[in-house]
Design a protein around this nucleic acid. Structure first.
Length: 763
DNA sequence: GTATTATCTAAGTCT
DNA sequence: TAGATAATAC
């Protein structure tokens, strides 16, 4: 049973074997911190601890999922499932569904996402007749969010003179007022935003001692991942929960603290010793992930930061290649160059696409990179920017679900009250909102008892509103009798969403329709799944449970382990991941480090930690690229290479490309644009001398919802989800806009955007 | 009053 | 580039 301890190194094992009392594991990048945590959970259970008595908190669903899988591997899924293992947000949401009644929330409360929150703030700013450029929704929300992260309620905020002065100085004197209205309206809608999940959890533990004691008793062992990313609220809550037993293990790395902008506080690690004088500290310094060259380069980067723990990360891995710096004339060339290197490495090192990641500072950079991959025929997937669940059409359908589950959910209600169009325009809706506001009640109550309120609405509109209310009510009657899939299907159909999207025959329209189909099939597989990962009450497959499950999910959580594609994502998203080959792009001043982070030393240091995180994602080979010019909001701008490149000890760098660049350019001019032929260019820029390799043509199809890219040719017989089989007659356009004209057996000739069409190649 | 079209504006990292 | 808003058509 305890054999698995042998799979740990000495320091890891020590950290695992000490179970009681406060423990800090300072774990460098790639030092096996997840391993230490999961083995500790397994060890606790193997020694007889009831899984129900273990609470393990992570920041991302992905990390939670991975830990759960790894504990299952060690112990079998039965025990692993019962551990309270999840993100801060999801675990607290689960508790608040049970205990929230004490704070006045029903168990079916809605979780507002950022878009909902911003819309609400916008409407409040408007109703107060304020300038929406001064009170920008995103910055107002940011202010409210950081207040909540510091456990400052609206009432506290408005009492605080210092905050008030600050707002006056920033020419936003009425921010406190907006905060108060925002909080009131969320509450009225039975909704919590992300930060409320933390703040309300704290209120619950603060004001209800019996609840506090209940959970203190329950969670005999508490483990926290990525402790350096905790904000004040999370810190306080964890401290309260652990106060009784003090059996708390936190894992963190100050060098990887990259969420300061969201209120994360490195000091939480530094102060741990003060909170727990008995604190035992273990340092994991051996890196198992990267080559010596990468590890040492990373060490040289972080030395530039003043504020840090003394750590010496080392590795027994091989020396490895130098970090190659790539220079490109434009952002597009950067994309092509990276694509070329990927093709080359894939063949020369016998690797697969999944081994590669392209990382960047901002989502906007993905476009140019995407184009390069696309032209070279490399399949890829972009993580982030717009998650599947954030797509308009998906949110629309989910908004129906939300309203049916919680009638008071104003944001969802307003989203669908006239979608699909049912003749209720701005004027009518505005009047209803005004009436709801003046009565301080949710919109639903107005439209549900329309005749009780004296609103100026004509008969026609009244009829339409009544029809809408009737429809929602009739859906609601199925909530308990039908499972999530059955009901979702009824709603998609009867609401008119499916018909509305089906009518739109544009490429985008077809893609929207397909997204709804995908959502429905996702719900279907949710219903058919054996167990329910995030909820204790296994087996409940109601629509309400489905919505609860997805409301905290993001794009990164969709695992695509089965598809062999290159990953594109922001560095933030890449945290905790590793790839054999990493391309770190856009290393330019004002982009990375970001222009907005140049004002203070601490912000710059956070950017540097971000750079450190990026570099330490690479296992075998790392490439760092920059462009001399880049399109930014429509114009081409010239860029300087990032200071971060200079900060790496030059002995770890391979600068040959900077000199070889000219010949590459000449070659570009020699072969004008015609068709992009990777083979030809390869020879000119190929770094390592490994000639004679041919480049295989990519002929796979990939069905990821985000971006699909594969090689189609005229004459191929393909299959489309809706149109059936057909033959490709011609292909035109490039990159994202590549269109194929397909003659379908049944449906006739159609023009399809390859990006969306998900054509399956038959022959 | 509502639906459609044209114009404008803003673009950072995320649970 | 897209999403929100303003102007115009129905």
């Amino acid at each position: 049973m305890k054999a698995f301890l042998n799979e740990l190194n000495e320091e890891q094992r020590k950290a695992v074997e000490v179970t009681d009392g406060p423990i800090l594991i300072l774990a460098g990048a790639g030092s096996g911190k997840t391993r230490a945590l999961t083995y500790k959970i397994a060890y606790l259970i193997s020694k007889g601890t009831d899984p129900f008595n273990i609470l393990a908190l992570t920041f991302t669903n992905k990390a939670a999922k991975e830990m759960k899988e790894r504990v299952s591997l060690l112990l079998g899924s039965g025990d692993a499932r019962n551990v309270w293992l999840g993100t801060f947000h999801s675990v607290f949401a689960r508790i608040l569904r049970v205990e929230g009644v004490k704070l006045g929330y029903p168990s079916n409360f809605t979780i507002y996402d950022t878009e909902d929150s911003k819309k609400l703030i916008k409407s409040i700013v408007k109703s107060l007749d304020l300038d929406d450029k001064v009170y920008k929704a995103s910055s107002v929300l940011g202010r409210i969010s950081s207040a909540k992260s510091s456990l400052i309620s609206a009432a506290d905020y408005n009492k605080d003179e210092e905050l008030k002065e600050n707002d006056v100085a920033l020419k936003r004197p009425r921010l406190g007022e907006i905060y108060a209205l925002y909080a009131e309206k969320c509450f009225r809608a039975s909704a919590m935003d992300f930060d409320d999940l933390l703040m309300n959890m704290n209120i619950l533990l603060r004001d209800f001692p019996e609840v506090l004691h209940k959970y203190q008793r329950q969670y005999k062992y508490i483990l926290v991942d990525e402790y350096q990313d905790t904000n004040f609220a999370q810190y306080v809550i964890v401290k309260k929960l652990a106060a009784n037993n003090e059996n708390i293990t936190v894992v963190g790395d100050d060098a990887q603290s990259i969420y300061g902008f969201r209120g994360a506080n490195i000091e939480n690690i530094l102060n741990l010793k003060k909170d727990y004088p008995e604190l035992k500290i273990f340092k994991l310094e051996q890196n198992y992930r990267s080559t010596q060259n990468i590890v040492n380069a990373a060490n040289s980067i972080i030395l530039n930061n003043k504020k840090q723990f003394k750590k010496e990360i080392w590795t027994e891995n091989e020396q490895g290649n130098l970090i190659k710096i790539l220079k490109a004339a434009t952002d597009n060339e950067e994309g092509r160059k990276i694509a070329d290197y990927i093709s080359f490495l894939k063949d020369s090192e016998d690797s697969i696409y999944r081994d590669f990641a392209i990382l960047y500072r901002t989502n906007a950079q993905s476009r140019a990179l995407e184009e390069g991959l696309s032209k070279t025929g490399i399949p890829y997937r972009i993580f982030g920017s717009i998650s599947f669940y954030q797509r308009k059409e998906v949110k629309d359908l989910i908004a129906y679900f939300r309203v049916i589950i919680n009638n008071n959910d104003d944001e969802a209600l307003l989203r669908i009250i006239n979608y699909p169009a049912r003749g209720l325009g701005k004027v009518t809706i505005d009047r209803i909102i005004v009436e709801a506001d003046s009565n301080r009640i949710p919109v639903w109550q107005i439209i549900n008892d329309l005749n009780d309120y004296k609103i100026e609405i004509n008969q026609g509109a009244r009829r339409k509103i009544d029809d809408f209310v009737y429809m929602i009510r009739s859906f609601a009657t199925y909530l308990n009798s039908k499972n999530a899939y059955e009901l979702a299907h009824i709603i998609a159909d009867k609401s008119g969403i499916l018909a509305d999207l089906f009518e739109d025959k544009s490429m985008e329209g077809i893609s929207r329709y397909e997204n709804i189909t995908e959502l429905l099939s996702g719900i279907k597989s949710y219903v058919e799944e054996e167990t329910d990962e995030d909820n204790a009450d296994n087996g409940n497959k109601s629509l309400a449970h489905y919505v609860q499950n997805i409301s905290l999910l993001t794009d990164a959580d969709k695992d695509d382990k089965n598809t062999d594609v290159v990953s594109l994502m922001t560095i933030h998203m890449a945290k905790g991941l590793e790839f054999p080959y990493v391309f770190l792009s856009g290393l330019e001043e004002n982009l990375f480090p970001s222009l907005m982070a140049l004002n203070t030393r601490s912000e710059l240091e956070e950017e540097r930690r971000l750079f450190y995180v990026a570099v330490t994602r690479a296992m075998k080979k790392l490439f760092i690229s920059y462009a001399e010019s880049r399109y930014k909001w429509g114009n081409q701008e010239f860029c300087e290479p990032s200071r971060f490149i200079e900060e790496i000890d030059p002995k770890h760098l391979d600068l040959s490309d900077l000199r070889a660049r000219e010949s590459y350019r000449e070659k570009q001019i020699e072969m004008p644009k015609r068709n992009w032929e990777p083979k030809e260019n390869k020879k000119t820029i190929t770094p390592d001398p490994l000639p004679g390799k041919n480049f295989k043509k990519v002929t796979k199809t990939f069905t990821s919802n985000t971006t699909i890219n594969s090689h189609y040719d005229v004459g191929m017989v393909v299959e489309h989800e809706r149109f059936g089989k057909g033959k490709i007659i011609s292909i035109e356009g490039a990159a994202d806009n590549t269109k194929a004209i397909v003659l379908f057996d049944k449906e006739g000739q159609k023009q399809l955007l390859l990006k969306y069409a998900k054509l399956k190649i038959i022959e």
